[in-house]
Simulated scan of single mutants.
Amino acid sequence: MFYASVLFQTVGFKNNASLLSSVITGIVNVSSTLVSIYAVDNVGRRVLLLQACVQKFISQIAIGVILRFHLNDTNSLTKAEAIVVVLLVCLFVMAFAWSWGPLGWLTPSETFLIETRTTCFAFVVSSNILLTFLIAQAVKLSYQ
């Protein structure tokens, strides 16, 4: 999500189209989070998490294959390939938004004992923020 507009520019979208694609993924994120609110108690946390792992893995592999073998020397894809990449990114965002995104906050609050919940949850949040920062910096370095 941090680098969605950069990714979409890389696959051939112009500046405005790149921003529009980021808006589209944001809308997908919000609507998929609403799916999670309904499904978490009806389907179960484990099913959502495992299903999302598979969906995210497949979408990332497909994006990687397309970019590896079809991104030409001018750093652009055909229009059809670029649309497929946007759809795959949306599938990834969907999987994250109905599983690991919200459940990463819900599950720790249900896991720890009441006596240690505050300290443990602080550790979970701190770890999450630190690792997000490190991943963002690693991606930033790879674009330079």
Rank of each mutant, 00 (worst) to 15 (best):
A4G: 12
V6N: 10
V6K: 15
V6H: 10
L7Q: 04
L7N: 09
F8V: 07
Q9A: 10
T10A: 12
T10K: 06
T10R: 04
V11S: 01
V11W: 01
F13E: 03
K14T: 06
K14Q: 10
K14F: 00
K14A: 04
N15I: 09
N16W: 01
N16Q: 11
A17I: 02
S18Q: 08
S18E: 02
S18M: 10
L19T: 09
S21N: 07
S21H: 02
S22C: 08
S22L: 06
V23I: 07
V23K: 11
I24F: 13
T25L: 07
G26C: 00
I27T: 11
I27G: 01
V28H: 05
N29E: 06
N29Q: 08
N29C: 07
V30H: 00
S31V: 05
S31I: 07
S31N: 08
S31M: 09
V35G: 08
V35H: 06
S36A: 13
S36W: 01
A39D: 03
A39S: 09
A39I: 01
A39G: 02
V40D: 05
V40H: 06
D41G: 05
D41H: 11
D41V: 04
N42A: 05
N42F: 10
G44W: 05
L49K: 06
L49F: 02
L50H: 04
L50W: 02
L50K: 14
Q51F: 01
Q51A: 13
C53Q: 14
C53W: 04
C53M: 14
V54T: 15
V54Q: 12
V54H: 12
Q55M: 13
Q55F: 01
Q55C: 14
Q55L: 11
K56E: 15
K56L: 10
K56G: 15
K56D: 15
F57K: 11
F57Q: 12
F57A: 14
I58H: 03
I58N: 11
I58S: 05
Q60F: 03
I61D: 14
I61N: 14
I61K: 14
I61E: 12
A62G: 13
A62N: 12
I63A: 03
V65A: 15
I66T: 08
F69N: 13
F69E: 12
L71S: 09
N72G: 09
N72E: 14
D73N: 15
D73V: 12
T74W: 06
T74K: 15
T74D: 10
N75R: 03
N75G: 14
N75P: 04
N75F: 06
S76R: 10
K79P: 00
A82C: 11
I83N: 10
V84T: 14
V86N: 05
V86M: 04
L87P: 07
L87N: 14
L87A: 13
L88K: 11
L88F: 01
L88Y: 00
V89E: 00
L91F: 01
M94H: 04
M94V: 04
M94F: 00
A95Y: 01
F96R: 05
F96H: 03
F96L: 12
W98K: 15
W98T: 00
W98G: 06
S99C: 05
S99F: 00
S99W: 00
S99L: 02
W100K: 01
W100H: 11
G101Y: 02
L103S: 09
W105M: 08
L106M: 15
T107P: 02
T107R: 05
P108W: 09
S109F: 06
E110L: 05
E110M: 08
T111Q: 12
T111H: 08
F112E: 13
F112L: 08
